[in-house]
Amino acid sequence: MFEARLAKGAIFKKILEAVKDLLTEASWDCGDMGITLQAMDNAHVSLVSLNLRSDGFDKYRCDRNLTMGMNLGSMSKILKCAGNDDIVTIRAQDNPDTVTFVFESENGEKQSDYEMKLMSLDLEHLQIPETEYACVVKMPAGEFARICRDLSQFGDSIVISCSKQGVKFSASGDIGSANVKLAQSSNVDKEEEAVTIEMQEPVSFTYACRYLNFFTKATPLSAQVKLSMSPEYPLMVEYAIDDIGQIRYFLAPKIED
């Protein structure tokens, strides 16, 4: 028996919005420690790694490790049926063919359940090596989304450069070029609005706008986003999910031949 109950059911709705355009299907791995999902997009340019800790759920029971292959478009359709204030429970038997989503209104007067067929997926699972990043930038998630959207108008790539002076986002194309520079916040009243930079060495890498814009679908999950960069390593874009976990996106850089 597997059962995971989350009073803040809207978190599941936001998670699906954050992955459904990038991934068509994925396996949800459930165990004692919680729920994880790892999947690459079809082109194998990016990788999504989601982690939801069991202690972040209001109720969590997992008698036996299980892997549930789901079509994320179908799962998204079902979660759209949940109200923003609904309590969401995900339930499955051991060795399941189906998974059940139960939505309860706050006052307990409405309860709906949706059963979805599971898929047998044979997906590659990649080892993500530990690394010390050369630069780690933390900034408001809304600001990052805005910059990615704005600069996408100029070309299909964004160069992210990070130095002691700050972080710079650049794009260029047929209509011209654009640069957005953010300095480290000097005086921060609200932590959520701060820009902070931890730098071991300056870096500058080129990334595809298309994927950065997919990642920013996670913006409603978190006030801040963390961008981590190192030579010979994919960009990591991380959004914390309340006190339950995080979603990390890895993006392979564009490389000069």
Binding site: V45, E124, I128
Partner: peptide, 14 residues
């Protein structure tokens, strides 16, 4: 133009 690399260039198949 720079070439798009792949995630599997960096992460190893488990």
């Amino acid at each position: 133009a720079p070439r798009q690399s792949s995630i599997s260039d960096f992460f190893i198949n488990r």
